[in-house]
Design a protein around this nucleic acid. Sequence first.
DNA 1: CTGTATCCTACGCGATACTG
DNA 2: CAGTATCGCGTAGGATACAG
Lengths: 126, 126
Amino acid sequence: MNDSTPILTRPRRKAGRTGCAVEVTLSVIGGLWKPVILFHLLDGKLRFNALCRMVPNATARMVTLQLRELERDGVINRIVYPEVPPRVEYELTELGRSLEPVLLSMRAWGMGFSSDEEREHLHICP
Amino acid sequence: MNDSTPILTRPRRKAGRTGCAVEVTLSVIGGLWKPVILFHLLDGKLRFNALCRMVPNATARMVTLQLRELERDGVINRIVYPEVPPRVEYELTELGRSLEPVLLSMRAWGMGFSSDEEREHLHICP
DNA sequence: CTGTATCCTACGCGATACTG
DNA sequence: CAGTATCGCGTAGGATACAG
């Protein structure tokens, strides 16, 4: 349980005085899967498995790691129901929900880009 | 000059049908330095060295790689002035400029988060 | 179901040196 | 100035197996 934090997951250096505010944001959501996870959580609580299924390109291990860091950074809550079989749900905190504009603008741009891509037949496809 | 593209720089798998639009956006700006680079370019053209200086935590090599990919993805233009000593400037394309809402919302959130952090003394510092 | 521990390897990326 | 080439290390993260 030492601090071996993957790079995709957490920038090796925190955004210091050297960087701009954008770097600060990246230090929290800067991981390939974090924005996707957070985005899906905008719709409400999600169980671990459901979350995994929404990010099929990431392994369960990665999802776990990302979730732990998001929790550490205070943008999500982890709710454990003392049941058998165990149930765990993740939800956005207030701070997490404040990321909504960022996430929505990311989605909006992605949708626009996809259209252009299909139309202009860029090199992104496969 | 083969296609050895770093992971930080380009997701190993493109955002396919499996993912949401957020993944598409991440496939373009999903790299720790790309959003920062793009953000600084919002203010206008920048030379290579200037750019490097704005992202001190990244090496020149990384900045170069990121720039090449951003160029490939059509969000920036690379302008070479046939002079001695050589001068190269980077600027956003129309597509790149359309990322402005994303970048601005990222900065806005980062500034807010920094304030909270200082005030509430969270564990983000270093 | 929701994880965590371990092993292992590909590859990201820093450092350095060199070019036009 | 604006890069590119090469080398080499550290580690991210996949696969697998196991636990509560």
